[in-house]
């Protein structure tokens, strides 16, 4: 060991102080990040503990009965599935193609910037406002009535700005020199996008789309006014049980169902409330893990 005198690079008293301040900052920032993680784990844990007892194949497969006080969760579960799927079919092409235009073709001028500001601001509009817009535009003006289609369209409008933004970010992450190489070899803009830009940004685009749609699956406000019912008697016979709603029908959805049984049904057993919450939570975790799997798979192929 060298003594201080032999070590010209030993820490000075001020440096020890600096290191302590640095350590304190590390601890404080760590504690703050735990302030996010711990409540989340507690919430998930509580839902699991309280809701686990009702989860069974029967609970998942039976329709709710008696206004939701008895039976299972099949109707709302399949309703959320169809709602999310319809929303995805509407929003994914529109959002992704709009994102491509805005990132690849649109000139950098005042109009484009105005559009981007509008898109970003739209993402901040509260969901209840989207609900009112959906009610006016789809349910009333376009004569869709309260229906699966009107609710899916409302969710699509709500998620569109976020999908456009995440698509733009994924495209912008593709290095510029790839595009330059394409142009230099005589490829058109569309050829460049189709063969190089899209394949290398698809993981980011898909991840954005899926995460946004999974958020939409948990929304209550926009569907409450545009098509989701508090309770419906549902067909029990096959194959109608697998496909209980058409695009023009009202439907049950998990988020709405949970909202109703948690507040409006008297004498509702607590474990059934937590059971529905658990199913909704698992569904969203499932969709999100799908996004993670896609991202990992596609990133493994990427070599830059």
């Amino acid at each position: 060991m060298h003594s201080q005198a032999q070590n010209p690079f030993g820490p000075t008293p001020y440096e020890r102080k600096k290191e302590r301040a640095s350590l304190i900052a590390k601890v404080v920032t760590f504690v703050m990040s735990m302030a996010l993680v711990i409540p989340m784990l507690l919430i998930i844990g509580l839902i699991f503990v309280k809701g686990w007892s009702v989860i069974s194949v029967d609970y998942l497969w039976e329709n709710p009965r008696g206004g939701g006080i008895a039976g299972g969760i099949w109707g709302p579960l399949i309703g959320t599935f169809f709602l999310t799927l319809t929303c995805l079919v509407i929003v994914a092409p529109v959002g992704v193609l709009a994102g491509i235009y805005l990132n690849e073709y649109a000139p950098d001028n005042r109009a484009t910037r105005a559009i981007m500001i509008a898109v970003t601001s739209l993402a901040g509009v509260p969901s209840i406002v989207h609900a009112l817009f959906g009610l006016g535009a789809f349910v009333v003006a376009m004569h869709m009535g309260k229906s699966l289609l009107a609710a899916a369209c409302t969710l699509a409008v709500m998620t569109l700005p976020v999908i456009i933004t995440s698509t733009r970010e994924a495209l912008a992450a593709v290095p510029r020199n790839f595009r330059e190489a394409c142009w230099n070899l005589g490829a058109s803009k569309w050829q460049t996008i189709r063969t190089i830009v899209l394949p290398n940004s698809i993981s980011g685009i898909l991840t954005g789309v899926i995460l946004v749609v999974s958020r939409a699956a948990g929304e209550t406000a926009p569907i409450m006014l545009t098509g989701a019912a508090a309770y419906l008697p549902l067909p029990e016979n096959m194959p109608d049980k697998l496909m209980p709603y058409y695009l023009g029908d009202q439907f049950l959805a998990l988020a709405m169902h949970l909202n109703v049984i948690a507040r409006d049904v008297p004498n509702m057993p607590t474990e059934m409330k937590f059971g529905s919450a658990l199913v909704l939570l698992c569904l969203i975790l499932l969709i999100n893990s799908l996004a993670i799997i896609i991202r990992v798979q596609l990133r493994r192929r990427k070599r830059w």
Binding site: P8, F9, G10, E15, K18
Partner: peptide, 16 residues
Amino acid sequence: ILGKNILDEDVSVATL
């Protein structure tokens, strides 16, 4: 450097 192995444990990179 200056008679001290800068890879030693007791070297402060800031001072270095």
